[in-house]
Amino acid sequence: MSTPFRYTEPLPPKSATGTVAEVYAQIALDFGIAEPVTFVVLSSAPELLAPTWALMRESLIAGAGSRTGKELAALGVSLANKCPFCVDAHTVLLHATGDHGLAERLARGEAPQSEEHARVLAWGRHTRVPGAALEPYPFPREHAPAYLGTALTFHFINRIASALLTENLLPAGAQRFRAVRSLAGRTLARTVRRPARPGTALALLDHIDPGEAPAWADGTPVGLAYAALLRAAMRGAGLLDTDDHHLVEQTLQDWDGSHPPLTLDGFPDRRERPGARLALLAALAPYRITDEDVAAWRRPEHTDHCLVHLVAYGAFVAVDRIESSLSAQIIREAL
């Protein structure tokens, strides 16, 4: 029987307990999809699952600004990261907002007719480049925490999806048919268009320290969720030895947002440094992770929990590089 999970075997959502069950309940209520595989794949690591959901909920769903605009920003991020799963998901969600014509233009690879929509989509694409000039924003400045949080959320989720899931949003790739996309979106319309109260997801987090929230979040719940995910994702560094950890961190410091060449020049050999290779692929080109890469790293003691943490670490090192450049840019402009 086919499964959307490439390298893990998550427990059936109906058997979930504790934090995982609480997250699933919120997802069903506020996202409209009972058990989305982008979150189920993280369920072996509840400490990652909860803040990932919290960051998405507090930015994309409950954050300020139009849902259409934030879906466009997320779609731009997903296009920049070459994540077909997430591109298809955001196209369906644009149908859910009622923007059917926009959704289908984008599904055909065409530009939005509206200049405002085109600017938001381009802005989302541009966020992949660390240090890129993201201002003036194509949305009101007071909406910036939600839009920035949405972009950073999907820089993370894109990498998780590309590394650990197949490309098909729906079985047999049914999302490629217009009627299916439209119907799927319409089934989510009531939930997507319903206002959500900010801050609800924070109750799922183990540790909240307002002092750790980034300045760009401007005191919103988005910043607390981001800080919680940063803390949880970076724990995956413990799966690498000191030299591999240093290699990953240094490589990302020098990253300019480009995709690696087909030859993967400069990537460690999978036989010699499989952990560093897997983490770097998760950061820079998760769609290039192969069965051989995972098999070379995985040993009997490496459970699904370990694999999810290593991929999440690599993914978040890239997110942190983007966010750090963004924060530095905001500080410079404030001086």
Rank of each mutant, 00 (worst) to 15 (best):
H90M: 02
L72R: 07
G63V: 01
L75Q: 11
V92C: 06
T91I: 15
V87L: 00
T91W: 04
A64W: 02
H95M: 03
G65T: 11
V87Y: 00
I61A: 05
G98F: 12
A89W: 13
G63A: 13
L93D: 08
G76K: 05
E71N: 12
S66V: 02
T91P: 05
V77T: 14
E71V: 00
A80I: 10
G98V: 06
G63C: 11
V77P: 14
R67F: 01
A89S: 15
S59F: 06
H90V: 00
A80W: 10
C83A: 09
E71M: 07
A80L: 08
A96K: 04
T97S: 11
L72V: 14
A62G: 04
L60R: 07
T91Q: 14
L72H: 14
D88E: 13
I61P: 05
R67A: 10
T97D: 12
A64I: 03
G65H: 09
A74M: 08
D88Y: 06
L72A: 11
V92N: 10
K70R: 14
L93N: 12
A64S: 14
A62S: 11
A96L: 05
S66T: 14
A74S: 13
C83K: 00
G98K: 09
G69W: 04
L93G: 07
L75D: 10
L93H: 09
R67G: 08
S78A: 10
